[in-house]
């Protein structure tokens, strides 16, 4: 169990670092979406199903949609 959790946390941190590095904002958004998704799984492991649901539907789905719309209406690459 703790091994799975550790691996998930490492992937999550790697995704966060990736969001920091990517010059393409769309890729960075997807990376931060992945951070949210893994966080939702971790919430579930921490016995918080309510929060996991909220994080998956709000944090991962809606926020990403809002980001994608905003990037579409501005510009995609970080100069």
């Amino acid at each position: 169990m703790i091994i799975i959790v550790s691996v998930l946390i490492i992937i999550m941190l790697a995704a966060a670092v990736a969001a920091c590095i990517f010059k393409d904002l769309l890729s960075a958004t997807i990376a931060s979406c992945m951070v949210s998704l893994i966080a939702a799984v971790l919430f579930f492991f921490l016995q918080a199903p309510d929060v996991a649901m909220a994080e998956a539907s709000i944090g991962a789905a809606l926020v990403t949609a809002v980001f994608v719309i905003a990037i579409r209406r501005t510009r995609r690459y970080e100069e």
Binding site: A16, A19, S36, E55, I71
Partner: peptide, 12 residues
């Protein structure tokens, strides 16, 4: 927008 992505990671 990168700063806002940082904010969303911070909140998570």
């Amino acid at each position: 927008i990168k700063i806002i992505i940082g904010l969303s990671i911070l909140e998570t």
